[in-house]
């Protein structure tokens, strides 16, 4: 009996959930789950089956086995230098788990759920910052110039830099609505990923 105590409660929960085929909603599941995913999508896969927990490189491989090229779900890639070779910057790489929590749409500081499994806090060069990704007037809160009640020019969450991209790109010229930017395309009302697409590593 004592060995049971050695298993962290979460690990025990996933082991149980996987052993008995329990899915979200079952009492044994430790976490809320996005309806698009089931525990078995990511846990108990071959290669990781000696250990129900996912670690390191196998996490990205797990996500991309479905969300990568020749996968079976909607495409996404890590955030990295522009693959066409026109990168602005030194080599960098932001992987899935840095922006997403595969277990739930986390509750953000406004008390609402973030969309698309995006974390409530993201850590980058500017430290750990809160993130808000909600539907706002039918649009995500990326660089929308519209306030909660429809006013235009609304600087969303003043001083918070809490859009998914802002948290790392806290550069007013670039990331924050680009109102004073010489980069004219950044003054558009489009969301950042509409131009910087996810399957192209968020490159322009």
């Amino acid at each position: 009996m004592r060995w049971l105590l050695l298993i962290p409660p979460l690990a025990a929960a996933v082991t149980l959930a996987l052993l008995f085929g329990l899915e979200s909603g079952d009492a044994a599941s430790a976490v809320a789950l996005n309806p698009n995913h089931e525990c078995s999508f990511c846990h108990g896969l071959h290669g990781g089956n000696t250990n129900p927990l996912l670690r390191g490189a196998s996490i990205e491989a797990t996500c991309l086995s479905c969300h990568g090229p020749a996968g079976t779900a909607i495409l996404a890639d890590v955030h990295k230098n522009d693959p066409t070779g026109n990168s602005c910057c030194a080599p960098f790489r932001v992987t899935c788990m840095e922006c997403h929590d595969p277990h739930s749409n986390q509750t953000n500081w406004r008390g609402n759920e973030n969309l698309k499994l995006v974390r409530a806090n993201i850590t980058g060069a500017n430290g750990t910052r809160p993130v808000v990704l909600e539907t706002r007037s039918g649009d995500f809160s990326f660089c929308d110039l519209e306030g909660p009640t429809g006013e235009t020019g609304y600087p969303q969450a003043v001083g918070e830099y809490d859009n998914v991209c802002d948290v790392c790109h806290a550069n007013p010229d670039l990331a924050r609505h680009h109102l004073n930017s010489d980069k004219q395309h950044h003054q558009s009302p489009n969301t950042c990923p509409s131009c910087h697409t996810h399957d192209n590593a968020f490159s322009p």
């Binding site: 108990g44 896969l45 990781g48 797990t62 086995s65």
Partner: peptide, 27 residues
């Protein structure tokens, strides 16, 4: 509960008639 492979991708048949198969997740 065991698994041989979980995300089968590219495959081939070799000269001996054996099946070669990549598992994308297991590497």
């Amino acid at each position: 509960l065991g698994q041989k492979f979980s995300r089968p991708q590219g495959l081939a048949v070799d000269a001996l008639g054996r099946i070669l198969l990549v598992d994308a997740v297991a590497g």
